[in-house]
Amino acid sequence: MKLVRKILTSFFICLLLCSAAYGSQPGSKQELDTFNNFAIGWVVKLNKSHIKGFSRMEITLQKDGSYLARYHAISPDSISCRVKKTSAKRKGLVGLLKYIETIYESTGKTPQEARANKFTPVKNIRITEIFSNSGKGWR
């Protein structure tokens, strides 16, 4: 249930942040809307399927006998979207999706306790993804 809430929160925050970029970006509103929808779906998919995401968190035994639980998630408040027209003669667009992937950790005396305790962010990784659209959708 918490994971579903996180995914929905990510979705709505991404929608708000990406739509806030409309005023300063070249391209039509329709192009921005299309990329915005694609970006939201992409981020939700990333959070859901990350190899080290919440549903597949790593739990390791530490030297002191405690357990460390760790997972990665995209911080929804860090997402920004941008669309540019290409300089090519053919019709084309480039979409930039920037976000911060955060690593969260928790410890406990047992694996179950480590998974249930409060997670704290320990590292942020800045990521920029570049997508193109030559009339066949975002890739």
Results as ranks from 00 to 15, higher is better:
P76M: 01
A114S: 11
N47S: 05
K52Q: 11
V94K: 12
I79S: 02
V83C: 01
R82F: 08
R56T: 15
S49E: 06
D64F: 03
Q25D: 12
L16Q: 09
S87H: 08
K91V: 15
E129V: 14
K98I: 12
G23E: 14
K45N: 13
L96R: 04
Q62P: 00
R5L: 06
I13L: 06
K48F: 01
S87R: 10
G95N: 08
F54K: 01
A73T: 12
W138N: 07
V83M: 05
R115M: 12
I130P: 00
G41Q: 07
G53H: 03
K89G: 05
N37Y: 07
F11Q: 14
W42D: 13
I100D: 10
G41L: 09
C14L: 14
T60R: 07
H72I: 01
V44C: 10
K52P: 00
Q30S: 13
K123A: 08
P26L: 05
L16G: 14
V43K: 00
L16F: 09
T102V: 15
K84Q: 10
C81Q: 05
A20L: 13
E113P: 00
E105S: 03
T128F: 03
R5C: 00
K91Q: 14
G108C: 04
H50E: 10
A88E: 14
D64N: 15
N47V: 06
R56G: 07
V83Q: 07
K123L: 15
K89S: 12
K63I: 10
A20Y: 09
A39Y: 12
I130H: 04
T128A: 09
V44Q: 09
F119K: 04
E105L: 00
R115P: 00
F35E: 03
I79Q: 03
L17V: 01
V43T: 10
R82Y: 09
P76R: 02
T9R: 11
P26F: 00
T128H: 05
W138D: 03
S19L: 15
M57W: 00
G65N: 12
K2W: 03
L8C: 07
I59K: 09
G53I: 04
V43S: 00
G41M: 08
G108F: 07
F38P: 02
A73G: 08
F38S: 08
I59H: 10
V4H: 04
T107A: 15
Y104R: 12
N124Q: 13
K29P: 04
R70Q: 09
L17A: 13
N117L: 03
W138G: 07
S28E: 14
S28K: 15
F35M: 01
N124M: 12
G23N: 15
S75R: 13
G41E: 05
R115G: 07
R126S: 12
L68S: 03
S75I: 02
S49A: 10
G135N: 01
F35L: 04
K98F: 09
A116F: 01
S75M: 11
K89H: 07
L68Y: 01
S80M: 09
F12I: 11
R70F: 01
N47F: 04
P111R: 08
K89A: 08
S55T: 15
S106I: 02
V94G: 06
S80D: 08
P111C: 06
E58L: 01
R82M: 06
E113D: 06
F38W: 07
V94I: 15
I13E: 08
L3P: 02
V44W: 11
K89Y: 08
S49R: 14
L46W: 15
F131H: 07
I7E: 05
Y99R: 02
N37V: 03
S78I: 08
S28M: 13
